[in-house]
Design a protein around this nucleic acid. Sequence first.
DNA 1: TACATACAC
DNA 2: CATGGTGTATGTA
Length: 591
Amino acid sequence: MNEPIFHYYGNKAGVEGADQIKQVIDDATRGSEYYKRQQEKRQQVLQKVNKMQMELDSYKNNEQKIKETKEIIQNKVKEFQINTDRIWAHFDMDMFYVACELLDKPELKDKPVAVGQTIVSTANYVARKFGVRSAMPGFVAKKLCPEIIFIPCHFEKYKSVSNIFMTILKKYDDNLESMGLDEANLDLTEYINNSQEDPAILCENIRKDILLATQLTASCGVGPNKMIAKLASEINKPNGLHVVEQSATAVLNFLEKLPIRKIPGIGNITEQILSGLNFNTCKDVRDRADELYVIFTPKTFEYIFYSCWGVARNYHVEFEDQHSISCQRTFSSISTQREFEDKVDYIAEKLAEEMQSEEKVGNHLTLIIKTSKFEIRSKSLQLNQYTNQAKQIAIYGKQLLKIMQLDEPIRLLGLKMSSLANEKQIQKQSISTYFKRQIDKSSGQENLVPSIKGSKSHQITEENDSFNKMSLQQQEQSKPDILSDDEASSISNQILSGVNSKSHQSQQQQQQYQQKQQAQPKSFRCPICNKEIDCKGNNTVLNKHIDRCITQQNVIVEQSDESNRNFSGSKIKVPSKIDSKAQKSFNFFKK
DNA sequence: TACATACAC
DNA sequence: CATGGTGTATGTA
């Protein structure tokens, strides 16, 4: 009943103090609304596990079914192969945000430090010994480690370090994929085929380059696909390398004892379910895959199954346009209708700002709230037109508010716009439906549509301006982007078919890099441009050079992105996408 | 389509 | 005293 809520600790982290740590966390948080909600969720998971266990029991009594299912699994095992002809590397900066801050405050190096305020974003290894973790609330971290020093987030700093990091890595794979400022997945196959370098030596050299350029350490994992590389990068973290050799047995060996929780995509809940059914390692999954087949949906089953066999994507996917833009805020609880509406207005403005700066419009709006009991609810609405205007969004948002019938205090409110299109792309449509909407207008919803020139009302004039602005843009005759529809990449699509990567964009550039790369002796060379720097051990000179190099390099990168966009009209990788996502994530730190 | 869940960073 | 924000995929009805 009073079971502590679930906290995940990687097996090498909390070590022997783990129980004590859990106790401290529990004492610090017991009784809060958040804690109560977590307990409820925990109970729900346990019920789900019970239900699954019953299904499993009945399965185990049905010999015929067992036979059939095991046959299906056998066939699946025969069908796939662990494709080892590609070489991937995953680079991951160690405790990135804290590490960046420590550059400016080296005296804190051996003290427990965390970046973040209400929530720990990153903790250094000193703090981690106390049990401090990412996503932990600040007050809990303080309980665990009263000495801990909190540093507020300085996003720009991290972004510029990240630029250096990414610039170095792009020399080896121009199409690198990244899920955050501090990590990147590289397909090194082409590079290594050309240079014939040993992957381990190459990656150690890259890590040295990163250290030289940023003064920070990165960990690296190497393997035949993206997932294995990522998993490998955690083995010798921090400041380490681990290589999983390019063979099926090496992969299977590597995964054998690995806790399922480590597999990207298996999170808190799935781990609880699996461990509740006594699946703990990848080997458990491989050995008893038929049981999972019975209780999970096909997609979930396939994902877990193939991951545990080491089968994952080993080629790059094309960049896809973002599907939604959202904005949400947490605040001290509010409970009156008036307060709700004010929040909607505020969030609508923020959302509109975001959409406009990204030149997007959308026609599907979702209102999200969190009650003070931490229950999340949402209502959504298909709009009758595309918009990115704060006033329109606010009007729709308030409609959703009504539909939701809120009668209890809330601590969070957000708006999400989906079904996005480029502002420019819908102009034609705007024009063609313009007169139709004038008719709609006369039937009541006049605030929702632009009006004709010369209208007298203040509100309408403003909206008229935005319409004119769009018309002007249309005259520029920019090419409309084509929305992708059939590229919906289901997990199974991604993990199956170990076929080739897309052709790389600039082979010339790569060859150029290789030539330079090969000729490098030991002395100081710039990790960005590969030129020899005669700095006589003076780091400042080197750093200044590197800074200049980065700036130049970035200009080049941006230009090439831009020309690609205009040239092909297809999706390209846009590193700035993730930048802006992370930027937005941390806006709330600034206040 | 609408809503809820799970996940990653 | 007390647990964030952005975006994606998937399951279910």
